[in-house]
């Protein structure tokens, strides 16, 4: 793989090159945050905070260190910290909010659900599968969730994930495997559940 030119550019001109970091990694980081927290607005804020922290951190690094930086895993690492800190701060407030707004949040608000009506069936099915999977991923326990997302959605290598999570390689591999196993079980349950509901709904014509 060609060497990423961004760290070199950042080392010589942080202010000038930083926009390139946001352009190159903004989508991925937002997607990562979205899988991690399951909410688009939170994901946007996490992504923004991540870049702001990254910029401030880079300001304190010496150029040699910046040049050696593997940006992607490093940014994921910051995003994980941002997401963790937010979750910690918010925990007391989210419980009553969720209780009040039951049914308002979650999947019904996802754009996938909103425009499903305008799509061909195969796409709907895939979009639905995507939405279900996204929810199952977001429901995984934190330690497996990050590992599974980094491995199978962001498709980082195990050493990269180990760097991002700051965990030993063996722990990372174990967490990915356990995470996927949990996901498969949840997915299986989900499908069983779907088949049951499908069975009851096929009796009435579609629409």
């Amino acid at each position: 793989m060609a060497r990423d030119p961004l760290p070199g550019a950042l080392a010589t001109d942080l202010d000038g090159a930083f926009e390139g970091v946001v352009v190159a990694h903004g989508g991925r980081l937002y997607g990562f945050a979205l899988r991690l927290c399951g909410d688009r607005r939170d994901a946007e804020e996490i992504a923004q905070d991540t870049f702001i922290r990254a910029y401030r951190a880079l300001g304190g690094y010496d150029p040699a260190r910046i040049r050696e930086l593997a940006l992607r895993p490093w940014l994921y690492q910051i995003a994980l910290n941002v997401a963790r800190n937010r979750a910690r701060k918010r925990r007391p407030a989210t419980i009553p909010l969720d209780a009040n707004g039951a049914g308002a949040g979650g999947l019904s608000e996802s754009p996938l659900a909103d425009d499903a009506a305008q799509r061909p069936e195969a796409t709907i099915e895939r979009a639905e599968m995507g939405a279900i999977l996204a929810r199952l991923v977001a429901d995984l326990p934190q330690r497996y969730r990050a590992a599974v997302i980094l491995r199978h959605i962001e498709r980082l290598t195990y050493p990269e994930i180990a760097a991002a999570l700051d965990q030993p390689l063996g722990t990372v591999k174990a967490n990915v495997h356990r995470g996927v196993r949990l996901l498969r079980a949840a997915w299986h349950d989900q499908q069983l559940h779907e088949r049951e509901t499908d069975g009851s709904s096929t009796a009435t014509p579609a629409r």
Binding site: G26, G27, R28, L29, Y30, G31, L34, R35, A47, R126, G130, L133, A134, V137, V148, H152, I153, E154, R155, L183
Partner: peptide
């Protein structure tokens, strides 16, 4: 899972 990647910011 692979297909969940590639969100646009």
């Amino acid at each position: 899972l692979h297909e969940l990647a590639g969100e646009e910011a």
